[in-house]
Design a protein around this nucleic acid. Structure first.
Length: 364
DNA sequence: GACTCGTGGCG
DNA sequence: TCGCCAAGAGT
C-alpha cells in the first residue's frame, strides 16, 4: 500500500501567551523588584513578597521609594522580623491601608520564626500567611518560584474581560474571568506571563482610551473587534460617598512640642500615631463623644481640613491650645509630647499630616 | 456578597 | 474640578 507523502507540518500558530511574552521581552519595564525577563537569576522571594504587599491597591510610582527604603533598612525577612513595630509603622506612613503594615510584620515573624526565614513555595502555603490573599499567593508562587498559577488582579481582570468580551457585570463576572484567565496561562514562564498581563493592563489596555493599535493581542481581542473595548469589564454603579465630620485638638507646648497619640491597633489608621480628636461621624458632636485632652480656651483655626478616604469624605475642625511647659495639667490618653521640628519623623498618616501643615501655617 | 480600609495621579 | 482608579485582604 503506497503511503501518501506527508504534507509539511506548518508550525502551530503562536498562542496568546506566546505573543504577549514576546511583547514583554521587548517592552518590560525596569522595576526595583523585577528580574530582567529571560535572566537566569532567581528572584528573591522576600523582595517579591514585599513588593506585592506594597503594590496592593497602590501605584508603582508610589511604591518605588518605599520599596527602596524598606529593602535598604531591612534587607532580609529576618531583619524585618526583628524590627520594632513603631519603626515599621512609621516607615509605612503615607502609603495607606495600614493593615498591610501590621500584617507585613506578622507575616515576617511567621516566616522568620516558624519557617526559618524561608517563604513557602506553594500557592497554598503562601495563602495561609497574614496579608496574603488569593492574588498575592498566586503572584508570589509564579514570580518568585516559577510555578504555574492563575494570577488575577484588576489589570488581568480588565484584559481578560476584553479579550473574551465578558459582558457580565462585576463582581458576578469573576468566576468566568478566572476560568478564561486559566485557559490562556502557559505552563512555562508563568511569572513573566503574569507580569506581562499586568504591564499590558497598566500601559495599553487601560480603563479609559485603551491603545488597541499598539496591542500585541489586538487580533485575539473580541472587545477590540466590537469597537468599544472600554465598555469591558462592566462595572456596577457606585453610590455616593458619605460625609463625616470631627474635631482634632492641636495641643502645643510653648517649648515647641505637640501632643501626639498612639491609635489603637485595629480599625482605621490602627497602630499609627495620630492627633487626638473625636470620632468621625455624621451624627454626633464631640460634646457627646470625647472631651479634649485638657480643659482650656481652645480656639478653632480659620479653615477646616478636608480629606477624602476610600469610603467617606471628612471635614475636620482643628481646635488649638497653647500651654506652658511647666503646666501642672497633663493630657489624658495614651500619647507623648513630640518636637515640632521633627514632626516628619512621627510617621503621621496623611490626614493628620495635613492638619499639622495647617496648624503650623496658621501659627505664623 | 457587602463593607471597611488611604493615598496620589490623571483625564 | 472631581470622580475614577491602582499588582486586594480581612471581616
Amino acid at each position: 500500500m503506497p503511503v501518501a507523502p506527508t504534507p509539511p507540518l506548518s508550525p502551530p500558530a503562536p498562542s496568546i501567551a506566546d505573543r504577549l511574552l514576546a511583547h514583554y521581552d521587548a517592552h518590560a519595564r525596569t522595576l526595583p523588584w523585577r528580574i530582567r525577563p529571560g535572566s537566569t537569576q532567581q528572584p528573591d522571594p522576600y523582595r517579591v513578597w514585599l513588593s506585592e504587599i506594597m503594590l496592593q491597591q497602590t501605584t508603582v510610582a508610589a511604591v518605588i521609594p518605599y520599596f527602596d527604603t524598606f529593602t535598604r533598612r531591612w534587607p532580609t525577612v529576618d531583619a524585618l522580623a526583628d524590627a520594632a513595630d513603631a519603626d515599621v509603622m512609621a516607615a509605612w506612613a503615607g502609603l495607606g491601608y495600614y493593615a498591610r503594615a501590621r500584617n507585613l510584620l506578622a507575616c515576617a515573624r511567621v516566616v522568620a520564626g516558624e519557617q526559618r526565614g524561608r517563604f513557602p513555595d506553594s500557592e497554598a502555603g503562601l495563602r495561609a500567611l497574614p496579608g496574603v490573599g488569593a492574588y498575592t499567593a498566586a503572584a508570589i508562587a509564579a514570580i518568585a518560584f516559577g510555578q504555574r498559577a492563575v494570577v488575577v488582579d484588576a489589570n488581568v481582570e480588565r484584559v481578560v474581560a476584553r479579550l473574551f468580551a465578558i459582558g457580565t457585570p462585576l463582581p458576578a463576572a469573576r468566576p468566568a474571568i478566572r476560568t478564561a484567565a486559566d485557559s490562556i496561562t502557559p505552563n512555562e514562564r508563568a511569572g513573566d506571563f503574569a507580569q506581562a498581563m499586568m504591564d499590558l493592563g497598566s500601559s495599553l489596555c487601560t480603563p479609559r482610551n485603551p491603545q488597541c493599535l499598539l496591542c500585541p493581542l489586538r487580533s485575539d481581542c473580541r472587545a477590540a473587534q466590537s469597537g468599544d473595548p472600554a465598555a469591558y469589564p462592566v462595572k456596577p454603579a457606585k453610590g455616593e460617598k458619605p460625609r463625616r465630620t470631627g474635631t482634632v485638638w492641636w495641643l502645643e507646648r510653648d517649648d515647641g512640642q505637640v501632643w501626639i497619640e498612639q491609635r489603637p491597633a485595629k480599625r482605621m489608621l490602627g497602630g499609627m500615631r495620630g492627633l487626638p480628636g473625636t470620632d468621625w461621624d455624621s451624627r454626633t458632636s464631640w460634646q457627646q463623644t470625647a472631651p479634649p485632652p485638657l480643659a482650656g480656651p481652645w480656639q478653632a483655626l480659620n479653615s477646616p481640613v478636608e480629606h477624602v478616604f476610600s469610603h467617606f469624605a471628612l471635614t475636620l475642625t482643628v481646635e488649638r491650645l497653647r500651654v506652658a511647659q511647666q503646666s501642672d495639667c497633663l493630657p489624658g490618653g495614651d500619647g507623648e509630647w513630640w518636637p515640632l521640628a521633627s514632626l516628619a519623623d512621627a510617621g503621621l498618616p496623611g490626614v493628620f499630616a495635613k492638619v499639622a501643615r495647617l496648624a503650623l501655617r496658621e501659627n505664623a
